[in-house]
């Protein structure tokens, strides 16, 4: 297994992720590393997310998605959301991505054209629309930067849009539990219905079919098919 390069890559990626999360935690706990950990985490998140959508080997991008989610959970920790960070690692980093990676492996076909990327022009156009259009609009509006045609300040962050308050730390796990069974009871029950539905739906679609319930009939049917051939 060690001969395979992908194994080493994956191992390095995981070790790197663990180190980054631990390091950022330590820095944060020391009290002066919040900026450091934010910039480190966000740089790595952006790099790995870009890699997920551009790397040609899909298995790599699957594992990079795990890395992205683990790093995002680090961001959640910086935002005082400890329970959410744990849930993110367990659900998104663990369950969802593992399912996706299984999907990649099970649908692997050497002759498949799916891994050949689109032509450059299409990707550049998409990049211009999304990266320059949507992204710039969002960022400029979110940060409230004004391109003032007459006034002196060209780039200035206006504080007016968001009603920013000082963050406070609360014990999220306990409070989330209470909120689930009080204020967010209806969505909670609805989510359980949703999961039930996903269970039924996924099983029905992924089940292997036999045309007849009876095994003997199935065999007979196969024999008939052979005779016909």
């Amino acid at each position: 297994m060690l001969k395979d390069k992908s194994f080493l890559t994956i191992l390095t990626v995981f070790l790197g992720a663990v180190l980054v999360v631990l390091g950022s935690l330590i820095f944060s706990s020391l009290g002066y590393g919040k900026e450091f950990s934010f910039y480190l985490l966000s740089t790595l998140i952006v790099i790995s997310a870009v890699a997920v959508v551009t790397v040609s080997n899909l298995v790599y991008s699957g594992f990079l998605l795990v890395l992205t989610f683990v790093l995002v959970s680090g961001i959640y920790m910086l935002l005082n959301a400890d329970f959410l960070a744990a849930a993110q690692i367990l659900i998104n980093g663990g369950a969802v991505t593992i399912m996706l990676i299984f999907a990649i492996w099970l649908t692997n076909n050497k002759n498949d054209t799916a891994n050949i990327p689109y032509s450059g022009y299409y990707r550049y156009t998409a990049f211009v629309f999304v990266g320059l259009g949507l992204f710039l609009v969002l960022v400029l509006r979110i940060t409230g930067i004004n391109f003032n045609p007459t006034g002196t300040p060209v780039l200035s962050v206006s504080p007016g849009i968001w009603n920013i308050l000082e963050p406070i730390k609360v014990n999220t796990t306990e409070k989330i539990g209470q909120l689930f069974f009080n204020e967010y009871l209806v969505p909670f029950e609805l989510a359980s219905i949703l999961l039930l539905m996903a269970l039924i739906g996924a099983i029905v679609l992924a089940l292997r079919e036999y045309k007849f319930e009876n095994k003997e009939e199935n065999l007979k049917n196969k024999e008939e098919e052979k005779v016909l051939k």
Binding site: A95, L100, G201, A202, V204
Partner: peptide
């Protein structure tokens, strides 16, 4: 998560 399960199938 639910969507990923259905999508996989």
């Amino acid at each position: 998560a639910a969507e990923a399960g259905v999508a996989l199938a």
